[in-house]
């Protein structure tokens, strides 16, 4: 767990980033580098700004009225806060998984094929391949291969969440953002998603928000601890949990608050 982060290319470089909802400052002076093909966990108590932060990375936050930001977030040598960004193109490269699986009310097949279809894949054979490989990547293929044409809403909660991950990786993003992806799932489904995350990091960069510290310790390479909109401490996961530098980090991970 103590491998050095510097070996990996930086995907996101967040510099002096601030964010306000109207007059309320929600994120203060954040600095964070997110390395490629690694799992970065964002932990912290409710209301610390961790969900807000992850939503700035694909600019979904700009949908909230009254939000404004300062500072820089470099992605692909572009400053997504300052440069004119094509949101559609940005989000094609940065997929997002939400708290609760949100498949479209369509068939399993159409859910996975949705992104590729719209991004221009027309051939049935090619779509079939993408659907199969995406569903295999999330270990859902064997469970759904006989019901590809039935509604995705008939799947269990855990299956729906894995389907959403399949739908996201079918568009071949560079980064997958996950906003508390297991908070609505039972322990068994949670475990499967965690295993999946560890496998997916070979191909994708993953940023995961979690309120579950054990989860962060189990699956991440790097952890950032958020409190009141600030990053208190961010380092490789092993050291953060074994030798926290800041007193507040220690209090939080030892369960004294939050």
């Amino acid at each position: 767990m103590t491998e050095t982060i510097t070996e990996h290319k930086t995907v996101f470089d967040v510099k002096d980033m601030n964010l306000w909802y109207g007059n309320t400052q929600a994120l203060k002076n954040l600095n964070l580098e997110i390395p490629e093909n690694q799992v970065t966990a964002i932990i912290g108590p409710s209301g610390c700004g961790k969900s807000t932060f992850i939503k700035t990375l694909n600019l979904m936050i700009t949908r909230v009225p009254g939000v404004h930001m300062s500072g820089d977030i470099l992605f692909n040598s572009q400053n997504i806060l300052k440069d004119r960004i094509d949101l559609v193109n940005l989000r094609k490269q940065i997929g997002m998984i939400f708290q609760k699986g949100n498949p479209f009310p369509q068939s399993v097949y159409d859910n996975v094929a949705y992104g590729p279809r719209i991004h221009g894949v027309k051939k049935k054979k090619q779509l079939d391949e993408i659907v199969e490989s995406s569903l295999k990547d999330v270990a859902l293929w064997d469970e759904v291969k006989d019901r590809l044409n039935s509604s995705a809403l008939g799947l269990s909660g855990g299956q729906q969440q894995r389907l959403c991950i399949a739908r996201t990786i079918a568009t071949k993003p560079r980064v997958v953002l996950m906003d508390e992806p297991t908070s609505a799932l039972d322990p068994v489904s949670t475990l499967r998603i965690e295993q999946l995350i560890s496998e997916l990091k070979n191909q994708y960069t993953i940023v995961i928000v979690t309120h579950n510290m054990q989860q962060a310790a189990r699956i991440s390479d790097q952890t950032a601890f958020f409190l009141h909109g600030e990053i208190i401490e961010s380092t490789d996961t092993g050291s953060l949990f074994s030798v926290p530098v800041d007193r507040r980090t220690e209090d939080y991970i030892s369960g004294r608050f939050g």
Binding site: R91, G95, Q106
Partner: peptide, 27 residues
């Protein structure tokens, strides 16, 4: 239509109009 479904569309890099056409109107 649940807002999560609209977000899902937008987060996949689908334009607003396409999300309306393929997600919102069918639902």
């Amino acid at each position: 239509v649940p807002p999560e479904q609209k977000e899902a569309g937008l987060a996949l890099g689908i334009t607003h109009w396409h999300t309306i056409k393929t997600v919102l109107i069918p639902s």
